[in-house]
């Protein structure tokens, strides 16, 4: 079966990511991340991206590559700052060159799920009594105090998976699944970087984690180190 989803290179797969786009990044703390796609994006010198990611610390060189290239103007994350002095995100935030929005991770994942699932927003009992409920609509639902959390949609999602078949069905390896499978459905265009591309039928339909309907483009992972 012919596939128009398979791209020749990471660069080709990210060629139309435009200035000011919202980009959802898979991976946790820089591991299991779409390094080839992010490198290709950093090389393109786009500006004003909003990046949504799990965290930027623990040596999250993936996001730092984009930040260092001056591509990012806003980060939405549960843990945007690295700890200690000299953290690039910290410095840029202090100088006013980078906007930061901190969102609890379960809420962030659910907001992206809402976007991908056509839900207009959810009432969650999360963060009540903390700084994460301030300024939000608070309502008692079924006797439980809840905050309203709107959907969070991306223009693009860049994710990493282990295998794709040519119709875009994906499987992951271990903890790779966590954030990659959570962000993939929430973007208009989802781009998967994979280690292996196989034929339809090579992935057991019972084991598909991300059905191909959510995946628009596939690029092979590069083994080259990032940076």
């Amino acid at each position: 079966m012919a596939s128009s989803k398979l791209y020749d290179s990471a660069a080709a797969a990210v060629a139309d990511i435009h200035d000011s786009a919202t980009v959802l990044l898979g991976g946790v703390s820089g591991t299991n991340a779409p390094t080839a796609l992010v490198s290709a994006l950093a090389d393109r010198q786009v500006r004003g991206l909003t990046c949504v990611c799990d965290s930027t610390y623990y040596g999250a060189e993936v996001l730092h590559r984009l930040v260092a290239a001056g591509c990012v103007s806003r980060i939405i994350s549960p843990a945007p700052f690295g700890s200690g002095q000299g953290d690039m995100v910290h410095e840029l935030w202090r100088s006013g060159d980078l906007a930061i929005e901190v969102v609890p991770w379960g809420t962030l994942a659910e907001r992206m799920r809402s976007a991908g699932a056509g839900i207009g927003g959810v009432f969650l009992p999360v963060g009540i009594g903390t700084r994460f409920a301030e300024g939000k609509e608070i309502r008692e639902v079924n006797g439980v105090e809840c905050v309203f959390e709107p959907p969070l949609r991306g223009d693009f999602a860049l994710i990493r998976a282990n295998r794709a078949d040519s119709v875009g069905n994906l499987v992951y390896e271990g903890a790779q699944r966590g954030w990659n499978s959570a962000v993939v459905s929430a973007a208009r265009i989802a781009i998967a970087e994979v280690d292996h591309v196989v034929e339809p039928g090579d992935i057991d339909p019972e084991q598909v984690i991300t059905p191909g309907i959510f995946v628009n483009r596939i690029a092979r992972a590069s083994s080259a180190p990032i940076g």
Binding site: A117, G118, V167, S185, P200, P205, E206, V208, F214
Partner: peptide, 18 residues
């Protein structure tokens, strides 16, 4: 070849989610 199985909640997330 190429099928994927999923639950009802994912089936309708696909539909409502555009």
């Amino acid at each position: 070849p190429g099928m994927a199985y999923f639950s009802s909640v994912d089936a309708f997330a696909m539909i409502r989610g555009g």
